[in-house]
């Protein structure tokens, strides 16, 4: 097992190199002069020269890539053209916000999706099955911004139950350690901040989690239906096991493998796809940051952010693979 993890880990190195090449080439894929495109038409020749110098655009590609990689290994993701702030510093604050939101959305999606899928499969063609699968069908096709705006209108404007934006209410104090607010409030035993951070997570979490929840529910249902017909389920029944053991242990553990793949993929997409949700709910995360920098043609920021998101995607995949192994003993260790 350990050797498998190590090997699988090493296998990510070429992938990461590929990702870094892609992120690096981004700036060179812009048609025309990258410096002019970033600074706009009003910039004079001197400013352009200076930016080219800063971004080392005059060096040969290989040398540029070399120094790009060299910077990466020291944790330098470049510097924003607009704010002149280092990208790494900005991400340090924003990445935890996005990851916290994505984790919360994924947890919601997984727990509810799997539960609904299992019940729908066990009670196939029941009202619950029909209702939840219709819901799931709607769920995958619902536009996030519409759902987000409707929730804000209902729960924030009309009912005034939930906050519409941000991670904490103004006035709530929280000493940040990891920048994961739920975690930080637990670490500092600050329950007021915990519940405040939690209610701020609810609506963006639901908005972001709806599509994966729907996909997970459908995947769980079809996977469970298949597994429930397997001979070993008949054996489990014939042994006189309680139904909940048959369903939630014997069937679900087998049915979970394809679901796990979906969860891993969806989680990767969430990390990158939080742009809309973060914009609607003014969530100070990576998504909004990258959107702003794309609109503002702040390419070093786009480069650095994409790189980080891609790296997280790779590691979520790695984690999924390792979990796969824990669940299914038949997968060989080679």
């Amino acid at each position: 097992m350990v050797s498998y993890i190590v090997r699988r880990f090493l296998m990510t190195i070429p992938v990461l190199l590929g990702v870094s090449i892609l992120a690096f080439s981004l700036i060179h894929m812009i048609p025309g002069d990258p410096a002019r495109s970033m600074l706009g038409s009003k910039a004079n020749e001197e400013q352009l020269m200076q930016l080219r110098e800063e971004l080392r655009l005059n060096d040969p590609y290989i040398a540029q890539y070399g120094s790009f990689l060299g910077d990466l290994t020291t944790g330098d993701l470049g510097t924003s053209v607009k704010s002149k702030e280092p990208v790494a510093e900005e991400l340090q604050n924003r990445l935890p916000a996005t990851v916290e939101l994505s984790l919360f959305a994924m947890l919601l999606a997984t727990v509810i999706g799997v539960l609904a899928g299992v019940i729908a499969a066990v009670k196939q063609y029941s009202w619950f099955d029909n209702l939840s699968m219709t819901g799931a069908l709607l769920g995958v096709s619902i536009p996030i911004f519409w759902l987000g705006l409707m929730m804000i209108w209902l729960f924030s404007v009309k009912l005034q139950w939930l906050p519409a934006s941000g991670r904490l209410s103004t006035g709530t104090e929280l000493e940040t350690i990891t920048n994961f607010f739920l975690l930080d409030s637990i670490l500092t035993l600050n329950w007021e901040a915990f519940s405040d951070a939690f209610v701020h997570l609810l609506m963006p979490g639901i908005a972001l989690g709806t599509i994966p929840m729907a996909i997970i529910a459908r995947m769980t249902r079809s996977s469970m239906l298949e597994v429930m017909n397997q001979d070993y389920i008949r054996t489990a029944d014939a042994k006189g096991l309680a139904s909940y053991l048959v369903v939630f242990q014997h069937a679900l553990k087998n049915a979970f493998l394809p679901v796990l793949t979906v969860i891993g993929l969806q989680f990767g997409f969430l990390l990158g796809g939080a742009v809309l949700t973060e914009t609607i709910f003014s969530w100070p995360g990576v998504g909004r940051y990258v959107l702003q920098s794309i609109l503002g043609r702040d390419y070093p920021v786009v480069q650095g952010t994409i790189l980080v998101i891609a790296i997280m995607f790779v590691f979520v995949n790695l984690l999924t693979d390792i979990m796969y192994k824990f669940i299914d003993p038949r997968i060989s260790f080679d």
């Binding site: 001979d231 008949r234 054996t235 014939a238 006189g240 096991l241 309680a242 087998n254 299914d328």
Partner: peptide
Amino acid sequence: MRAIRGDRISMVFQDPMTSLNPVF
């Protein structure tokens, strides 16, 4: 009935390849 199954009356199935749960 569950108390009887696997206790008083039990069953062996045809295909031992598929009748045991692969993940336990």
